[in-house]
Nucleic acid binder design. Structure first.
Lengths: 191, 191
DNA sequence: CTGAAACTTGAATGGTCGTTCAAAAATTGG
DNA sequence: CCAATTTTTGAACGACCATTCAAGTTTCAG
């Protein structure tokens, strides 16, 4: 079973290299050779592990989505009131581990190309629905029914917009500040 | 001077074809041949008019940015109060001519690739700054100074987020509905 | 230690695509 | 109608790249 170990280590290394390489070169133009160089490996070995470039991209996206999921679970575990849980959903998206330029950049680029890849658009849809239902679950207890959809829409769009701008930043991000700003927006929306 | 005319007509046709082709195939993978087929021309003639693929993309982006600018000027001309002008800034982005899936899709894809093209990132920066200063000019008269930046940030991120989601839609958009929703969000933010 | 399984890679392959160019076609001014 | 200019395009070029493969190297269970 020690045989399994190496595969996992390599996977992680290659995915990290992918995040860096895609951020610096762009999703559309990054080459297998560049990713390989970033990882200190060869293009051929990436195919050995992920089968194809698309497989690598999908795995990288899964990796990020999983990070987000974990951050959300982590936040939920210490939130008691509906409003705290609403904060937690926001905070998960601006977690220290997630809210970095390279990762936001990657996210946005996957986003932009999701409509053209069934595998990516599936991941995208699943994630969006999860976030949506988390928002709805908490908002239901905080705003009257007729405002529910408006509030959810405003918050979810706001969140997407913040990521979008973050991806364009040429200076390191400040996750704590982003969380503060998000809380203020939440307060604005749920009163 | 009749000599100039054909060039303008062709330019417009080729840009329209680019919007459609990029939307259906994706910015990263669309080929000159596909755009040419969409326009009923040859790939060579596109290079004749725009010099290169990047030139075509920049021209297409300029075309969209100009549409947005015109819509904003149009809106401003009939708005009297600060709040009406704030609505107008929003409405310009959700104008009937602009808020279509293909154009939102294109917008997002240009956005995603702007950081890797000096020419595109310049356009992007200019547009962002224009929107920002319009927001600030009106908000200054509507919210206390200490809330100014929060309000601008919330509205601008919301707007970006709406476009981002619109780009993913698989059904035609409803600009009037989007404007209504945006107005509700504005009301939420400026009280 | 040994052999098999896991891993790695350089080189070759096959294909794609942006761009160029020369020549043809269309347009226009005189 | 003529010649000059503009416009169009098919074909060719050259570069690039994901993927494959055969031949190596490393790892490890027995």
């Amino acid at each position: 079973m020690g045989r399994k170990r190496i595969r996992d280590i390599r996977n992680e290394e290659l995915i990290e290299a992918t995040i860096v390489a895609v951020h610096t070169r762009g999703y559309g133009v990054v080459t297998m050779a560049e990713i390989a160089r970033e990882a200190g490996a060869s293009a051929a070995s990436i195919n050995y592990y992920f089968g194809s470039k698309e497989g690598l991209m999908e795995a990288t996206m899964r990796h990020l989505l999983n990070k987000l999921k974990q951050a959300m679970i982590r936040g939920y575990s210490t939130a008691d009131t509906p409003k705290d849980r609403l904060y937690a959903v926001m905070d998960a998206n601006f977690d220290d581990d997630l809210f970095k330029v390279a990762q936001c950049s990657l996210w946005m680029q996957f986003w932009a190309s999701a409509p053209y890849s069934p595998r990516l658009s599936r991941l995208h849809r699943i994630n969006r629905n999860r976030v949506r239902s988390h928002f709805l679950a908490e908002l239901r207890r905080l705003v009257p029914p007729e405002q529910l959809e408006t509030a959810r829409h405003a918050l979810q769009c706001y969140m997407d917009g913040v990521w979008l701008q973050a991806a364009q930043s040429d200076v390191p991000l400040d996750p704590a500040k982003a969380r503060k700003a998000a809380h203020r927006v939440v307060d604005l929306v749920v009163g």
